[in-house]
Amino acid sequence: MLNVGKIDEGFVLDHIPAGKSMDIYRDLRLNDLDCTVAIIKNARSNKMGKKDIIKVQCPIDNMSMDILGFIDHSITVNVIQDGQIVEKRKLSLPKEIVNIIKCRNPRCITSIEQELPHIFILTDQEKRIYRCKYCEEKYNGKHRGG
């Protein structure tokens, strides 16, 4: 079994479905951060068989994990300080999603103006409904990680 060392401060994202870690790496824009990131693929899991894990060594105030609530709320977010888990963060749906999903409505202004950010607003928490900020089209597609 491959061992990846502990981190002092940051996040451990556990129970990521196997094969999805690179999508989450992109969605969290981890490549923009100047910090140590470990991606563990296909780790053995009693619960899931196989799973992915991401460890991010960074000041915990530096990153928002909100988007994970939209991507896959079954992912466990462990917050680490001084080498210990200090919090298991509960994921909630973000109120706004920017440039993670695209509006597919061919009549939407985003279909012709490429520089516009794709922004979705949470309009119904209970039914998990997001609508395009511009045309209010409901997002129907499944997110690639969810």
Partner: peptide, 10 residues
């Protein structure tokens, strides 16, 4: 008036 939805919001 614009044929694309959301243009006035932009």
């Amino acid at each position: 008036r614009h044929p694309k939805e959301g243009a006035p919001m932009v």
